[in-house]
């Protein structure tokens, strides 16, 4: 769980990002203008800042100079290349353009948090502990044997917990983009996970969409 500040003047987008991050197990604070954001940064400790560029009061480009060593992901509709370069040259950890898919944002949040070692390296639920560093799963303290693909699938489901992922999305995230196999492979691996870890109630099949890890 990471503590994330969302700075975005568009109320609906701010709420949307916040809702999704909370679902996947993060704690969020929202700011709708640069000044409020700066006050929050000065008074609280954050693991990550999601920052819009055009903000009332203080722009994202100004704000990033005052964030210290907190990682920053820019979220903006400004598509010009020089803006992108400016964002990265100012020390942003990533740059994401509107409109974006929520899974994309979540994936980037995860990557930045992992890189800056601000995310947990393990996740526990029920009687199960998942260690992301050693890529091992323990059930009641004893190791459970998973294939590398099964582990990756579990990891992706945990990262996007409470959010349904389509079979195609899972193939993209777990297998490679040019994977030739059909989506039945996903079903087979999900069955394996449910069977090996007793996750029948946790990994739900969502009608017409795919699978969701619920917690």
């Amino acid at each position: 769980m990471a503590k994330i500040l969302i700075v975005e003047d568009e109320t609906s987008i701010n709420a949307l990002i916040s809702k999704n991050l909370i679902l996947t197990g993060h704690a969020c604070k929202s700011a709708h203008d640069g000044i409020t954001a700066l006050e929050l940064i000065r008074s609280e400790r954050f693991d990550l800042i999601i920052l819009d560029v055009m903000l009332p009061g203080l722009s994202g480009f100004d704000l990033i100079k005052l964030t210290g060593d907190v990682p920053v992901i820019f979220v903006t509709a400004k598509s010009a290349l020089e803006d992108r370069l400016q964002g990265l040259s100012l020390g942003a950890d990533d740059y994401i353009l509107k409109p974006f898919e929520m899974q994309e944002l979540l994936a980037r949040v995860r990557i930045v948090l992992r890189r800056t070692k601000r995310d947990e390296n393990s996740f526990s639920f029920d009687n199960i502990t998942v260690d992301f560093d050693s890529r091992k799963v323990f059930c009641d303290g004893s190791a459970v044997e998973l294939t590398p693909k099964e582990f990756s699938l579990l990891e992706v489901l945990i990262i996007n917990r409470n959010i349904a992922l389509s079979r195609e999305k899972l193939i993209n995230l777990v297998w490679t983009y040019d994977y030739e196999g059909d989506t039945r492979t996903v079903d087979v691996h999900i069955q394996q996970l449910r069977h090996k870890l007793g996750l029948k109630d946790r990994i739900k099949t969502i009608y017409k969409i795919g699978y969701r890890f619920e917690i």
Binding site: K19, A77, E101
Partner: peptide, 20 residues
Amino acid sequence: MRTPLTGIYGYAEYICTANI
């Protein structure tokens, strides 16, 4: 155009996929 579209897509996605 993008800002409302991001919202519309995002919330639709949220309704479809999130456990809420």
